[in-house]
Each structure stands twice: as structure tokens, then as C-alpha cells.
Design a protein around this nucleic acid. Sequence first.
DNA 1: GAAAAAGCATCAGTTATATTTATGGCGGAT
DNA 2: ATCCGCCATAAATATAACTGATGCTTTTTC
Lengths: 314, 314
Amino acid sequence: MTITQLQYVLAVAEYQNFTLAAEKSFVTQPTLSMQVQKLEDELDVLIFDRSKKPISITEVGKKIVAQAKNIVAEAERIKDIVDQDKGFIGGDYTIGIIPTVMPTLLPMFLNTFIKKYPKVNLIIKEQPTDALIRNILDGHLDAGIAATPLEIEFIKERPLYYEPFVGYVPKNHRLSSQQLLTTEDLHVNDILLLQDGHCFRDGVINLCKSSKSLNGEHFKIESGSFETLVSLADEGMGMTLLPYLNTLELDQKKKQYLKQFKNPSPAREISLIYHKSELKIQITEALKEVISSIVRGAIAFQDVKIISPLGKKN
Amino acid sequence: MTITQLQYVLAVAEYQNFTLAAEKSFVTQPTLSMQVQKLEDELDVLIFDRSKKPISITEVGKKIVAQAKNIVAEAERIKDIVDQDKGFIGGDYTIGIIPTVMPTLLPMFLNTFIKKYPKVNLIIKEQPTDALIRNILDGHLDAGIAATPLEIEFIKERPLYYEPFVGYVPKNHRLSSQQLLTTEDLHVNDILLLQDGHCFRDGVINLCKSSKSLNGEHFKIESGSFETLVSLADEGMGMTLLPYLNTLELDQKKKQYLKQFKNPSPAREISLIYHKSELKIQITEALKEVISSIVRGAIAFQDVKIISPLGKKN
DNA sequence: GAAAAAGCATCAGTTATATTTATGGCGGAT
DNA sequence: ATCCGCCATAAATATAACTGATGCTTTTTC
């Protein structure tokens, strides 16, 4: 049994296809076939059932794959140990960020980070929360940035900042005369929401008292971007809620329609999340430090009340 | 990096000597040297400092060795998974037993076990508790039988039975007129003890109220076997305490001097202990079942009060 | 339902890697 | 100073990993 064989098994298990797995492992298909067979011979069990296409994993195979993941991850950790000892921070680092955070947060820290840690090759992907979790669990992502608390087993959450919700209340809206908003003012049928699948949407619905009347309305508009929501609000279709950082880039003209909440303002907690096995922990720590220190300046702290992304999406 | 390389590193770390480590690994010394070097090259660190004899492990080396132990153990676990799936119970299984339990317990279960699981190659070693713990922690023992509770990190304890202490009070002894003993009757200076290093000794001292007066007495006899203690007691040197199972093999004549304790009788808890990583868990479970079922018949249960082996020895 | 396509296994040949035997060199003991 | 124990190096060999070509089976397509 070799670590390479285990990696091959993992590749096949992942892609359910020897040929594809071989490509991804940068070897030819026979190499993969033979090594997997060799391991199967050594253990004297079938890991994969090749009799039908697509191939499937046997019951023992599943257990073996799970254990193989462990072993391969633990093996990679050795390089981590050495790197940490040398004080070296570098190598590939893949991070996923939820769509509602990506455009505002990324430009804030990216430049600083790559300057400070030039040897780290950051690979950034925009993904909804559920994909983020899956990819962190199976090792495709080294870390993620998402709304928390998620409280997923095997995933650690390290809060980066608390981002208050800000209301965007257009002219002539029911609430436009108020100075400050309260959560009681909100009616879910009156608020323009992001498409289903965004955790920010779930957070907002969670926030509104009258969320029970969400269905059965005679009109409902949902968009995938805050920009669209603001435009729709301007057209008199209702109000909307924005995360604080998204309000910074609005036109000066539109900023007049922003209304803060009364303290404690509802807010979302944005955290760096990563597998609790703490692979590449030095880079994760470095990233957390960079983002925290930058956001500290951008978000004026206030009394805040965390809203959970109950739907666990986006 | 290969699992074999990690195993070689572990061997060198253990024996602090390449030549010896090579022998134990059943390869030649250059093989070991080269593979260790290769790993060092790949990681670009020195694991061992060869400049002085005997060689020493570098600081990073220690961390690498610790992680390597993990990986190798996890890798071996794969065979476990397969065995479990096949319902196969076999292979080498090394167990350590404390001296005061070995002679009485071993003959009780050994025969039954090897008949029931003929494919398991049991290797049994008599070792004091501290050695047991060390060997379980570093993987040299698959399990141990010792007095508990020990509460050692990474070690699981599964109680097998509770063995009451029985007093051996010779003719003309201060207590020989009593029917039943109580712990209050005991005086440490009056009891013949095993040599230092046996946990049973520690348990007894722990039991005696007047243990403070242990030192500074004008005579003290300690022996390594219960047989000697009984003989000494017969010579009028004092009384002694025996674990219940040890009383079963006494002469009929001597059995008249045995005195039970009033309920709840002081007792020691004997457990199967093993690394919490649960390597070879199927065999461990099988062993536990065999011993438990046999001892269930031998020890008449009664009210019992556990005495901790505080000294954590033997 | 035949033909094409996709996908895994097998084989022979090659390359890479692990291991061995023989030997050299260095530190520590006598 | 010499010897001995111990690790490194070198060259040769054995073993294992990988590739390209090909064959066989299952699935898809028309």
C-alpha cells in the first residue's frame, strides 16, 4: 500500500471514472487501473464495482475511501509541519467566497494579501454556502468565507467581522419618513429579495416577523444582484436590505435613501471557515489576520444582533 | 513521500541507530539511509542529526515522527477495515498484563481464546503498568490488562471485572478473632506488601488509613510474589492482602486464614486498556468478550468499593 | 438491434525506484 | 594511534511504476 495508490483510489472515487481520474492525476489510465488493482489485490477486496457503467463503489470501498482521505490529508500535513518550522508561507491555497460577499470584500484584502505573502498562489472561487461546505469537507477548498454560524461538524468558524444590514427605502415608501428602522417595521412581502439560494435572502426572511405570509402573494420579484434590487426599489417596487459593505459603493444620490437600524442593528456574521483538521493552517491564519485588520478599519463597530443564515445556503 | 519511508523514519527514531533500525525493518542499512535521506530531501529538512553518535532527532524531526506515527497507524487501519468487513479475526496481537494478574487470569482465558480464534497469534508480555501505558501509546502493545482507573489521555479503559481484596490473617494475629475485616482494621505497618513498583501495593497503601506512618518503621519486608507474602505471614510477620483470584489456588489448609471484608469490600478494577485509535478493534472486542464471560463465572459478585491504583505503577 | 462510442483491463516494453553488496570515511572508545 | 561501530556513497541488480497499443465489454445512438 502506498500513498500514491490511495490518491488514485480517491481520484477514481471522486470522478467515478478511471479515464477521467487518470487525467486529473496526470497519469495514463492503465497506470491507474493497475495501481488500484494492486491495492485491491493486497487488501483482497474489491473497492470498485466495474461491472456496470458508471462504475460504483462497494460498501467496503466507501469505508476505505473515507480512511484513505484521512491518510492522504495527514500525509500532506507533514509538509505543513515542515513549512511551519521554516516559517514558510506559500503554495497553492484555494478559497471559496459567497456571492454576496465576494465583490465587496475581495478587492479590499486581495492586494494586501498577495503583496504580503507573494509565495502563496491564491485561487479564489465564488460559491454558495452549501457548495462551500461540501468542498471544504472533501478537501477541494482550503477555506471559505461565509455567513455564520453554520455549526457544521468538522468545520471551524473564525469570525472576521459583523456586517450590519442597512435598509434602502426609496422615495414615497411607507417607511421613508422614519429616521431609523426597527426589525418590527419589516414586512417580508414589501422587501425585494435575492434569488432563492442566497443565504443573505434566508437571513432577511429569518429577520422579518411576518415571514409566514411569504407565499401566496400576487407579485414577487427576486434578483441575483443588489444593484438590480436597488434599481427595482427606485422604481417603487418596495424597499430592500443591503449588507453594509455593499452600501459603500452606491451613488452619492442613492445614499440618501439608506436607513440604518436602531441599535442593536441586525447584522450578519462573516467568518473564515475551514476544515478542523487545520491543513495549511499557517496560510489560513495569515489570511484571517490580513482580512481582520483591513475590515477593522472599514466597519465602524456598533451594537449588533446576529442573524443566522438559517437556510444554510449561499 | 511513501508510507515505507515513514516507517523507516519511525524505526530510526525508535532505535536511534540506522543499523539496528534496518535490521528491525528487515532491510539493509543503506536502504534505510537512502530512503530517509530521500524523504529529508523531499521535505528539505534534516530529521536526524548524524554528526554525533548516538544520532539525535532534530526539533522538526520530532514533529515529523509524531505525525508519521499517525499516518502509519491510520494506514494500518485500512487492513482493519477490510478484516472487519470480512468478519476475519486474525493476525498478530500483542498484549501486556500486569504481574499480579498474569498468573491467575492468563490460564483462565488463554485456552478458550486461542481455540475460539485460532487465526489470532497472541503474544503475551508481563509488564508493570507504566511500561504497559508507554507501549500502548507508542504502538508496541495492542492492548493491556491493568488495574484501573488510570485515566490516561489516548487510552481507553474497558472494565473486565472487579476483584475484591481478601485478607490473609495468620494464627495469633491481632485480627484473627474477627469474622470479617473492615478497612479501619488495617494498619500499613502490619501488612506485608509487594515490592515497590506493583500497583497492587499502591492500592493497598492507598486503602490503609494510617499510610502516613509508612516510613520510619524498624522493619519492613517486601516481596515480589504473593506466595512469599503468605509464607511470611505464616511465620508471624504480619497479615497480608490478596486479590480474590489469587486466593483460589491456596492450599485447603491455608484457606482457613482468609478473611473477607465487610460489604462493600474494597476491590480493584481490572480493565482491558488500549489505544483510543482502536486499531485491531475486532480482536480487542473478541478478547474482552472471552475474558468477561469467563470471569463472570469465577468471581461471585458482591458489593464492592473500587480502590484506585494511585501510584500508577505495575 | 446493429454500429459506434466509451471505458476498463491486459500486454509488452521502458523508465524509474528500491534494494543490495561492497566500500569508504568519520567519530568515539581503548 | 589504532580499532571499532556506524553512517554515507557507489555501482549493480531487482522490483515496481508507468506508457502506448490493443482488446473486450457495456452503454449509447440511430
